[in-house]
């Protein structure tokens, strides 16, 4: 049995004490050790983006970080987006605009968009497309994802104002 390291992760504001091998990716730690299976693995080499989570507010690939590197960081995953049954504006917009089909890429797209919109709520259409080109979706053809994120951005801006 390879050596494990005891770490504490802060995920969605909750503390998780886990014992993990250094080689375990943050995605695997979230899924298997924290039981947060909303973060998905589609490629494990940083291209598809299904595992995108926020680390200290920035969207990153959870398959390209080791769990041990995430200690002391504020991690946010899809499970932390909704407030109970009240959906986040992005979740709501994805639902109302059919921004998902099989749903496998959805958590990654949501976290990508949350991070990007929190950094810059007033992205141009071109910037938005560019950011959303970071993740792959095989079902929707993207147009409803782009539309949902644009509408959610409007709502998030309105809420801030």
């Amino acid at each position: 049995m390879p050596d494990k390291i005891a770490i504490t992760l802060d995920v969605n504001g909750k503390s998780y004490d886990v014992n993990v091998e250094p080689r375990r990716s943050l995605a695997d730690v979230l899924r298997e050790d924290c039981g947060l299976t909303g973060t998905h693995l589609g490629c494990e080499h940083g291209v598809c983006g299904a595992c995108t989570v926020l680390v200290d507010g920035r969207p990153v690939r959870a398959c390209l970080m080791f769990g041990v590197q995430a200690e002391g960081k504020a991690i946010r995953t899809v499970e932390g987006l909704a407030d109970g049954d009240v959906l986040h504006p992005l979740q709501k917009a994805f639902w109302e605009n059919h921004g998902l089909q099989c749903g496998f890429c959805t958590p990654g797209f949501l976290m990508l968009a949350v991070g990007a919109l929190e950094e810059n709520p007033a992205m141009s259409e071109a910037e938005l497309r560019d950011v959303l080109s970071s993740n792959l979706c095989r079902c929707t053809g993207y147009q409803n994802i782009v539309k949902a994120v644009r509408l959610a951005a409007d709502e998030m801006r309105a809420r801030r104002a």
Binding site: G46, T52, V60, L64, L112, G115, D130, S134
Partner: peptide
């Protein structure tokens, strides 16, 4: 690359 890759 892409936005999340550039964050890291």
């Amino acid at each position: 690359a892409h936005y999340p890759i550039r964050q890291r």
